[in-house]
Nucleic acid binder design. Structure first.
Length: 410
RNA sequence: GUGGGUGUAGCUCAGUCGGUUAGAGCGCCUGGUUGUGGCCCAGGAGGUCGUGGGUUCAAGUCCCAUCUCUCACCCCA
């Protein structure tokens, strides 16, 4: 039997209402904050991601679905959306048409990792990007937006973590400080962390190695060595979150894996899913656009994992229940009336949802099916009523029925 | 890429110290009088026990391999 590729999933009809519900809530929230939807291709030239996300990141280094097409161009299925959105912005000069572009998306992404709870190779994200302003109000808005969406979906068991990475100049100073602190402890670090000491020293804070954590516990923190401008930016973000009533905690060790972040980074972390607990992550990226084009456009954004959110909703038992319903089921008493049923059904279908039996089942079986489908009303065609030009209309909720002229349905 | 667990009906699972026709619940189908659902009752369909080897008189059960799914590491949404 041919099966879906490892790490991919079919979303079956009975799950679709949950997806539609989530997408509706996302779209409505985005609309409320005046974000406009954007859709970009599923694949891009590989160098968009290698340049945009960063060669040293895990995503680019070992997780991308990359292949050569027939003209030998290196193609990659998008592992995240920010680089694509920025590409589209520059390609169509949206940044010149509007000073500020507030965009959102809902789209599948692809990463070749080992699947586990809350992690898939094809997964869906919704997210938002605001391009064109350095205002901390937008950093706060992103966090508020993500927070509100999760709340509207019914989730409560999650926390908002924020941090600031400052600007590159203050970060460089800090990195040197950190290197100095670690210089005599290098041999005590795990192998992985020793590598990161060279490639991306900030990520040492992420290490789950006990000994590493012990060492890092006393390390100087970036947030204590920010320049004044970065501090002020961060302070304003926090003030606005407070005034918006968004509870948050500052996590100085929150260092995100993508190269392009500056200033604010944040995560919304659930306590209701497995170890893949980040429902949503994002931050400010004032340098990315320049890296991909010649123009200098600041930006801030977030991405949220739909599968993880649905999983959290299930575990928190806040998934709304959707009971299937149709307006009419048409029961045919004599099988010679099949053509009549077909005609009436299609008339009703101009306005209502209608179903009928396509096989030759008994009246009892048809009624059972009507009940199974959640039909509000059953139209019975045939017998003496039909000869008098009437049909029986049965109300399935209370079992009452009445005769109505068949003309009403023709 | 590394490690642990798992695989029996459409679904959730039981199956004893290896022993004869492999079970349950749910779901599905049919029926419980001539043309009526939900509840109840009766009956029915549906399984090469993941796959391939091996041990044995005998394997769903033991051993090996392989695949699958799954959880965790890693990383992230």
């Amino acid at each position: 039997m041919i099966k879906a590729i490892t790490g991919t999933k079919d979303i079956l009809p009975n799950e679709i209402p949950n997806w539609n519900n989530l997408e509706d809530i996302v779209c409505n929230a985005m609309k409320a904050f005046n974000y406009k939807e954007i859709r970009t291709p599923i694949f891009e030239e590989t160098r968009l991601f290698s340049r945009g996300i960063g060669e040293a990141t895990d995503i680019v280094g070992k997780e991308m679905y990359t292949f050569l097409d027939r003209s030998e161009t290196s193609i990659t299925l998008k592992p995240e959306m920010t680089a694509s959105v920025v590409r589209a912005l520059l390609e169509h000069s949206l940044d010149k048409q509007n000073q500020l572009n507030k965009l959102f998306y809902i789209s599948p992404m692809f990463r070749q990792e080992r699947p586990q709870a809350g992690r898939f190779r094809q997964f869906n994200q919704f997210g938002a990007e605001a391009l064109g302003s350095i205002s901390p109000a937008l950093d706060a808005e992103m966090i508020l937006l993500a927070y509100q969406i999760l709340k509207r979906l019914g989730l409560s068991n999650f926390v908002v973590k924020i941090n600031s990475l400052g600007v590159p100049s203050s970060r460089e100073n800090y990195k040197n400080l950190l290197k100095e602190y670690l210089s005599d402890k290098l041999n005590d670090l795990s192998e992985e962390s020793q590598k990161r000491y060279e490639t991306n020293i900030l990520r040492l804070f992420d290490s789950k190695d006990r000994d590493d954590q012990k060492i890092m516990e006393h390390a100087p923190l970036l947030i204590e060595h920010l320049d004044d401008e970065s501090l002020e930016h961060f302070e304003e973000v926090k003030q606005m979150l407070l005034s918006a009533g968004v509870p948050f905690e500052v996590d100085p060790k929150l260092v995100r894996g993508l190269d392009y972040y500056t200033h604010t980074t944040f995560e919304l972390v659930s306590g209701s899913v497995g170890s893949q607990s980040a429902l949503c992550g994002g931050g400010r990226y004032d340098l990315l656009v320049k890296q991909l084009g010649e123009r200098d456009v600041p930006g801030v954004g977030f991405a949220a994992g739909i599968e993880r959110i649905l999983l959290a909703m299930e575990n928190e038992k806040v998934m709304p229940e959707f009971i299937p319903q149709i307006d009419y089921y048409i029961v045919r008493l004599e099988k010679e009336l099949s053509k009549k049923v077909f005609e009436i059904a299609n008339n009703l279908r101009k306005e209502k949802s209608v179903e009928f039996d396509y096989t030759q089942r008994s009246v009892k079986a048809q009624m059972r099916e009507a009940n199974r489908l959640g039909a509000k009303k059953v139209l019975m065609i045939g017998g003496s009523e039909y000869e008098r030009g009437m049909v029986v209309l049965k109300n399935m909720s209370d079992g009452s029925q009445e005769e109505i002229a068949i003309k009403e349905f023709e």
